[in-house]
């Protein structure tokens, strides 16, 4: 198992490098000059600008610049945010935990909703429950997160006034009340994101269970007198989850997109809203770093999927 995971981890290194090449190519193809403002400033002589360009190596060939950028990223030198006036890595580390908590909670919600509903739907295909579940799943993944977010705010914050619609990191309450306030403000972002993922996951789960339930070993399990619950949980659901994990892993990049939008709607102070505000403020080092962190998160989640894979189907890890 550990050798299998190590192999998967080694495979993800070229992926990360590939993504960094893509990002760097995009950045270097882009027009614009970091010292453009100096060029229009009459008080700065042209030589000073040229010296600055040489000092920061802007005129070096592309591969040299790429190598320098990658090595400094590896060393943890991610640059300096012009807008926030702190180092980019400190800034991202401040924002990352919120994003991870919201994403993780949403993923958990999605699994808790999708696995039972998908399984139950597949056990009684074309029943009333199945048709309702299918309809809601279609509605769920046709509703873009930004619209669901606005509808939730409209319903729960404005009409019913139950939940706050702005996420605050600096809640002054203490003790249990502090936890309660944090949970309360996280309900809507987590629900928006989690239900969106649950919709697609329900469909995957239903299809996978339908494929598995007709197989002979399920009949065998029933015939030898296993209780229905054990058959379902240990034999059907476990095997049905294998293709679901693949499909969910393929969806992960989209999930980060949805998380970014959700953070922006509810003003969750995570890396998604950091990305948007840095783009609007032309803060290039932060934009590059956050994009790269997203890519790294995708790679980490794919590794998690591989881990789950090996646990669900032990044969995979021995190959």
């Amino acid at each position: 198992m550990s050798r299998y995971l190590l192999r998967r981890a080694l495979i993800s290194i070229p992926v990360l490098l590939g993504i960094s090449v893509v990002l760097f190519t995009v950045l270097s193809l882009a027009p614009g000059d970091p010292f453009e403002e100096l060029a229009t400033n009459p008080n700065v002589p042209a030589e000073v600008r040229q010296n600055l360009r040489v000092k920061f190596g802007l005129d070096d060939p592309l591969p040299v610049r790429y190598a320098r950028w990658v090595t400094s990223m590896l060393r943890g030198d991610w640059g300096f945010s012009f807008v926030s006036r702190i180092n980019v890595d400190t800034l991202i580390l401040q924002r990352l935990p919120v994003t991870l908590v919201v994403l993780g909670a949403a993923q958990l919600l999605a699994i808790l909703v999708a696995v039972p509903i998908g399984t139950y739907s597949a056990l009684r295909p074309y029943s009333l429950f199945d048709q309702l579940a299918t309809t809601f799943a279609f509605i769920g993944f046709s509703l873009p997160t930004f619209f669901t977010g606005l509808l939730f705010i409209l319903l729960f914050s404005i009409y019913l006034d139950w939940l706050p619609f702005i996420y605050r990191a600096d809640i002054s309450a203490t003790g249990w009340r502090w936890y309660w306030e944090h949970i309360r403000q996280a309900i809507m972002p987590v629900a928006v994101l989690g239900l969106f993922q649950a919709a697609a996951m329900t469909r995957f789960m239903r299809a996978a269970v339908l494929d598995v339930i007709r197989l002979d070993y399920v009949n065998t399990a029933r015939a030898k007198g296993l209780p229905e619950k054990t058959t379902l949980v240990k034999h059907v659901v476990r095997n049905a989850l294998i293709p679901v994990v693949t499909l969910v892993a393929l969806q992960i990049p989209n999930v980060f997109g949805g998380a970014l939008v959700t953070e922006q709607i509810f003003r969750v102070p995570g890396i998604g809203s950091l990305l948007i505000s840095s783009i609007l403020a032309n803060d290039t080092p932060v934009v590059m770093a956050v994009t790269f962190v997203y890519a790294a998160l995708v790679v980490v989640s794919n590794l998690t999927a591989d881990l789950l894979y090996g646990w669900l189907d032990p044969r995979i890890s021995y190959r």
Binding site: V22, L23, L27, L250, F256, G257, V261, I279, T291
Partner: peptide, 13 residues
Amino acid sequence: LFLSIPALPLLLL
């Protein structure tokens, strides 16, 4: 490689 790129952040970039 392209499948593991998070599309929305890259799109924004």
